[in-house]
Computed example of a mutant assay.
Amino acid sequence: MDRHHNINYIEIPTQNIAASKTFFKEVFGWEFIEYGEGYSSFTARGIDGGFFASEQCVSTATGSPLLVLYSEDLENTQAIVEQAGGTVIKAIFSFPGGRRFHFTDTAGNEYAVWSE
């Protein structure tokens, strides 16, 4: 695949890198590489990226892009998100092409999960 001009990497603000890493490891199985106290990266998740220390949060209410993850079992993923301390902010709903829900992680960042 040609990488020229493709989205290559995403950096996500978090008020607590350790909590974000724990949440995403527990819910989605992500692994991390440390780059000092203020940065931790992830790879092989559809797009590579990292968490950086910040007081800001990602939220569609403030105009942030929405990061959307995929699940083969939407209800199970929602249950795991809640068990890990995430908060469902939009319950599962249908949209053209599938269904999804929105949640905030333990740092307050908004994400969505979708399925066919």
Rank of each mutant, 00 (worst) to 15 (best):
M1N: 13
M1V: 10
D2Q: 09
D2K: 12
D2N: 14
H5I: 10
N6D: 02
N6I: 10
N6Y: 06
N8Y: 06
Y9E: 06
Y9T: 07
I10A: 10
I10T: 13
E11Q: 13
E11T: 08
I12S: 05
P13A: 06
T14A: 05
T14R: 08
Q15K: 14
N16Y: 02
N16K: 03
I17K: 02
A18W: 00
A18I: 06
K21M: 15
T22W: 01
F23C: 08
K25P: 01
K25T: 13
E26C: 03
V27E: 00
V27Y: 00
G29L: 10
G29W: 04
W30K: 02
W30R: 02
E31A: 04
E31M: 04
E31F: 01
F32W: 03
F32D: 02
I33G: 01
I33D: 09
E34Q: 14
G36H: 00
G38N: 07
Y39R: 02
S40N: 04
S40K: 03
F42H: 07
T43P: 00
T43A: 07
R45G: 07
R45H: 07
I47F: 12
I47G: 12
I47D: 11
I47Y: 11
I47K: 12
D48M: 07
G50A: 09
F52G: 08
F52V: 03
E55Y: 10
Q56A: 15
V58G: 03
S59I: 10
S59V: 06
G63Y: 12
G63P: 15
S64I: 05
P65K: 03
L67I: 15
L67G: 04
V68G: 01
L69Y: 14
L69H: 07
E72G: 06
D73T: 09
L74C: 11
L74Q: 11
L74E: 11
E75G: 03
E75M: 08
N76W: 00
N76C: 01
N76L: 06
N76R: 12
N76S: 13
Q78Y: 02
A79T: 14
A79D: 13
I80Y: 11
I80D: 07
V81P: 08
E82R: 13
Q83K: 15
A84T: 11
A84Y: 12
G86C: 06
T87E: 15
T87R: 12
I89D: 09
I89G: 11
I89A: 12
K90I: 10
F93G: 08
S94Q: 15
F95I: 14
G97A: 12
G98A: 08
G98R: 09
R99N: 14
R100N: 14
R100V: 02
F101A: 11
F101E: 09
H102F: 15
H102W: 08
F103I: 09
T104C: 05
T106C: 14
T106P: 08
A107R: 02
A107Q: 00
G108C: 00
N109A: 05
N109S: 03
A112F: 01
W114S: 13
S115W: 05
E116W: 06
